[in-house]
């Protein structure tokens, strides 16, 4: 498919789902009153519901989904491995651990800034560990096993940190950190995470040439004028910023970065750089759709969106593993 047409279609899809997300909610505002409340004003309750409750939720779906999609595409390109994904290789779980460790310890008071600071540190550590393990030529198996180990360790330490908190509510928040949610977030969360994510996107996009060159492996990439240490740093920091900032405000949401690049790749020329923007848009669309589903699948009882993405993503992952095995990559 033509790259422009693909991006156009994806933008249209994201836009529709974004509006859909704005129009769904228990308060059953009619769409016109809702849109009026969002843009023009009108009844006070409608304004607050639209601007303070639904808008931040839809925006987070957009930017966190974009981050997960583009980070997945970048990691796959960088590691030349179609199973690389921020969740599977343990970046999301470790970002959660970082956020939990700093926030619940009360070291930063109850400041919300503790969340992104901790999550970024956690994500950075995870990406560095994975790249250290994946240095040179790693098999898919090594990568996934390292990710499983890292995720399990981070998950266990997250549970431990939450259980040690004297706050009686902390232990109930394990599920949020392991299977994220966008319920009742506010614009504060959007402003807290958006600049960091945008910096992450920029770093990832700036590495697009290196990702293309890495199609041939590191030796040829270097001979094509690629500064590999700089590319590695950009990808590490870009993924850590995008995934870390997202995890800080929504908890760990898995599989978006795995599923989306796979669905999008056949629609592109398969160049790693051509996959970045469409995967971001696809990630936004998938997370917005999953978040809408999380609100309407079980009436009156909202699901964690991370549960839904795992329900879609885990079988997909199994299918991919089976196929990868057959093709003996």
């Amino acid at each position: 498919m033509n790259a422009l047409r693909l991006s156009g279609l994806l933008i249209l899809l994201v836009l529709m789902l974004f509006i859909g997300s704005l129009l769904i909610g228990p308060a059953a505002l009619d769409p016109i009153a809702g849109m009026k409340g969002l843009f023009a004003g009108g009844e006070e309750a409608a304004i607050i519901i639209m601007r303070e409750v639904r808008l931040p939720r839809a925006l987070l779906g957009l930017i966190v989904g974009f981050s997960l999609g583009i980070a997945g595409a970048a990691l796959q390109g960088f590691l030349r491995n179609p199973l690389a994904e921020p969740g599977l290789i343990g970046v999301s779980a470790t970002a959660s651990l970082g956020a939990v460790a700093i926030f619940y310890s009360g070291l930063a008071g109850s400041s919300m800034l503790a969340l992104p600071a901790g999550a970024l540190a956690g994500a950075l550590v995870a990406v560095l560990i994975i790249l250290a393990i994946a240095a040179g030529n790693t098999t898919t198996l090594t990568l996934i096993l390292a990710g499983v180990a890292l995720s399990s360790l981070s998950g266990a330490l997250t549970s431990l940190a939450l259980n040690l908190s004297p706050n009686p509510f902390a232990s109930y928040e394990i599920i949020f950190w392991l299977l994220g949610s966008m319920k009742d977030r506010s614009m504060v969360h959007v402003w807290l995470s958006l600049p960091l994510m945008a910096a992450g996107w920029a770093l990832i996009l700036a590495s697009s040439r290196a990702l293309d060159a890495l199609t041939f492996g590191e030796a040829t990439a270097a001979s094509l004028g690629t500064n590999l240490p700089r590319a590695r740093l950009s990808i590490v920091c870009g993924v850590a910023l995008a995934v870390g900032a997202g995890t800080a405000v929504t908890g760990a949401i898995g599989f978006i970065g795995l599923v989306v690049p796979h669905l999008i790749r056949p629609l592109t020329d398969r160049m790693p750089s051509s996959l970045l923007m469409p995967s971001g848009l696809g990630g936004a669309a998938l997370l917005l759709a999953a978040d809408i589903a999380a609100r309407i699948v079980v009436p009156s009882r909202e699901l964690n969106v991370g549960v839904l993405t795992a329900l879609i993503g885990a079988p997909f992952f199994l299918w991919l593993v089976a196929r990868t095995r057959r093709e003996a990559i």
Binding site: L214, T215, F216, G217, T220, D269, R270, P272
Partner: peptide, 9 residues
């Protein structure tokens, strides 16, 4: 080493 990471044309 003949590495071709992705099914590019």
């Amino acid at each position: 080493e003949r590495t071709i990471g992705w099914p590019l044309s």
